[in-house]
Design a protein around this nucleic acid. Structure first.
Lengths: 183, 183
DNA sequence: TCCAAAAATTAAGTATTACTTAATATTGCC
DNA sequence: GGCAATATTAAGTAATACTTAATTTTTGGA
């Protein structure tokens, strides 16, 4: 967040735009922009959004949220990031994400015996997905039918397809789940 | 951006946190949070950042930047398709491929102790990749440095980046390798 | 090298609004 | 019912985002 100003400036200069044109296009004063770029003033959420839009980038990019993500980084299994769990015995973890061009997100689904994924995923993504059973066995329900994936089995499907994961076994199961989506 | 409040609330409720705890943790008043969630008030960049951090998500997610982002066949592990092997102890298998829109290819690299991937991959693809250590340990060499991935560790990188895989251990190792490329 | 126009910065003041306090309403539970 | 926890609303304040206008720096052409 401290480097916000630098990032705006860098981005602006990359597009070869002056403070004045950016000011005119976004409807804020050149002076404000100058202050922002120097870390003397801080934009509001609305303002930064306008700037991000005009500079053809995202707020996340400008405030540096994607820096650690797009940089190469190995993620240990134990460093997986808990996202959420539902009341049906399924927990979602984030293993990795990489958003520079298209978006690649990798999740891990931990499923207790009898668990179902249900509302764990609100999926409005546009792209393709792949899942791989790390341990145990998982039943994948797609719009056409059910597929039973045993340990180390895997499959691809579309993001827009309705999908649900179940663990119909009596052992805990782990599913690797990779989503590559188009912006 | 209009649904910011809804998203905060949704996220907060998913984690089963009350307004008061969130307020205490982020250092803003419960009232402010309530107003935000109802779209009556708007957080500053700093505030939304604190909230995103505490809710274990990102500003981009909360303001909805990632919304657009966010013939089926199951392949048994034993049905993996051998592609080729090199003379350095590495074998390449195809686990899945899915080419309708963008291309998603999933390979498995089987590496004998001391093996290197070398010429196993001719990579002129344009996109992003992800690898996950199914078993054993793999060293990934990218243009910037080497990353040691232990069992079940993983990472993302660009397709255009120079890359090589090695098995510096004395046990056979298996690497899942997912490539999502833009046409 | 100088000059003029453009671009960028700074200072100071204003106005918006983010945020708080405190009181009120709602929900849940024994 | 009644207490406690949680959530909402109203009103006021304080912070700061933002503007205006003047100043400085940079740029490019004769």
């Amino acid at each position: 967040m401290e480097k916000l100003g630098e990032r705006i400036r860098k981005r602006r200069e990359h597009l070869d735009i002056t403070i004045n044109t950016l000011a005119k296009s976004t409807g804020i004063s050149p002076s404000m922009l100058s202050q922002m770029e120097h870390g003397k003033a801080f934009p509001s959420l609305h303002t930064i959004k306008h700037i991000a839009d005009f500079l053809n980038t995202s707020v996340g990019e400008l405030i540096g949220e994607n820096d650690t993500l797009s940089a190469n980084r190995a993620i240990e299994w134990n460093d997986r990031k808990f996202v959420k769990k539902n009341s049906y015995g399924a927990s979602l973890y984030l293993l990795a994400e990489h958003r520079p061009q298209q978006t690649m997100e990798v999740f891990m689904l931990e499923m207790e015996p009898g668990a179902t994924s249900n509302d764990l995923i609100e999926d409005k993504r546009n792209g393709q997905e792949y899942c791989f059973v790390i341990e145990g066995s998982i039943t994948v329900s797609l719009s056409d039918r059910e597929y039973i994936l045993s340990e180390r089995a895997s499959m691809c499907f579309f993001s827009h397809d309705f999908k649900q994961f179940k663990n119909n076994t009596s052992d805990k199961s782990y599913l690797l789940w990779n989503i590559a989506s188009i912006k």
